[in-house]
């Protein structure tokens, strides 16, 4: 009789259960009606089964988003866990869609499911990639824009993981400031 090690058949559980959402911009529908839950997973193996099955971000048409959020948190400002929060925002140039977009998004997903931010991972709600003709965006959303210690730790680690040069900065903006901004830019609460 062959003895099979549990390693070969037990999947590797993640700390959290995660949901992947897809948004497609159909102007005949409401914002919420354009948002759909693709799938939920809580193991390393099921994460890859999903990731390998879906289109890369760079193949999506303009106006689409992917969002990965902890199970039970909806990918919108209004959710109870998001409404006092904000995001570390990575804005990409048009050329970066070819060079960096898919790499940055995968790195972002790995940071989330791997709980890269240590104890501060509890502050993470999710991440979003926006495909836009004027420039794509990737962001990690956190729960509380007043939690300076957690936010700056997450920002520093995230910037390093993406390989963003030290001399370039990334900014953290509260969702309330983004929602009420008057111009095209939102003021940064934190910068790393």
């Amino acid at each position: 009789q062959e003895i099979v090690s549990p390693e070969s058949y037990i999947k590797h559980p993640l700390q959290n259960k995660w949901s992947l959402w897809f948004f497609k911009n159909d102007k005949t529908k409401t914002w919420q009606a354009n948002l759909c839950l693709i799938s939920t997973f809580d193991t390393v193996e099921d994460f890859w089964a999903l990731y390998n099955h879906i289109q890369l971000s760079s193949n999506l048409i303009s106006g689409c988003d992917y969002s990965l959020f902890k199970d039970g948190i909806e990918p919108m400002w209004e959710d109870e866990r998001n409404k006092r929060g904000g995001r570390w925002l990575i804005t990409l140039s048009k050329q970066q869609r070819r060079q960096d977009l898919d790499r940055f998004w995968l790195e972002t997903l790995l940071c989330l499911v791997g709980e890269t931010f240590d104890d501060y991972s509890d502050e993470v709600c999710g991440a979003v990639v926006n495909i836009r003709s004027k420039g794509d965006k990737i962001a990690i959303w956190t729960a509380d824009f007043d939690n300076r210690e957690a936010i700056t730790h997450i920002g520093r680690v995230y910037k390093e993981r993406l390989g963003i040069p030290i001399k370039m900065t990334i900014g953290y903006q509260s969702h309330s400031d983004t929602a009420t901004k008057s111009g095209s830019t939102t003021k940064n609460k934190f910068v790393v």
Binding site: S8, L110, T116
Partner: peptide, 20 residues
């Protein structure tokens, strides 16, 4: 403690899912 996985460990599973 948390179930943390580093990037190389996670990447090692990318093409194993189909085999299990």
């Amino acid at each position: 403690g948390k179930r943390q996985y580093n990037r190389d460990f996670l990447l090692g599973f990318q093409f194993m899912a189909a085999c299990t």
